[in-house]
Amino acid sequence: MMAIFIDILSWVLLITGGAFGVIGGIGLLRFPDFYTRLHASGITDTLCAVLIVFGLMLQSGLSLLTLKMVLILLFLLFTTPTATHALARAAVLDGLEPKLADQPQASPSEEEPPSKP
């Protein structure tokens, strides 16, 4: 009984994860400019990965495989925001202007002298 319940839960997680991946892919194609596409890639990198990894973890139970899946999830969740930020920062420094809904004069401060954070 319990095993069937866990199996069904893991299927639901896997299928929704795959669905979010496809939605993110569609967003990657549909969003109008580079900065908005970063948000679409965010969907596929976060929720899709989290759901699929949780679903797979339920399939294997407590084992070395599950531990490795946890590590994969941790690596992904730590590295993807860093990569996304590096991309966005590089694009800003390169002078790529984001398309904005209003106040088109507001641009990120790429001309400021670098300050030490």
């Binding site: 896997l14 299928i15 994860g17 795959g18 669905a19 991946g21 496809v22 993110g24 892919g25 569609i26 990657l28 194609l29 580079f34 596409r37 970063l38 890639s41 596929t44 990198d45 899709c48 699929i52 679903g55 993807t80 990569a83 996304t84 991309l87 590089a90 694009a91 390169d94 790529l96």
Partner: peptide, 30 residues
């Protein structure tokens, strides 16, 4: 689920081919 992931990869490849800027391509490859 694997097929759904492959579909997402295909969509990302379409974005990588279309561009238009180099950064769009790098996002798609990511």
């Amino acid at each position: 689920t694997t097929l759904a992931i492959f579909l997402t990869m295909a969509l990302a490849l379409v974005r990588a081919l279309r561009g238009p800027t180099i950064y769009d391509r790098i996002v798609a490859v990511n």
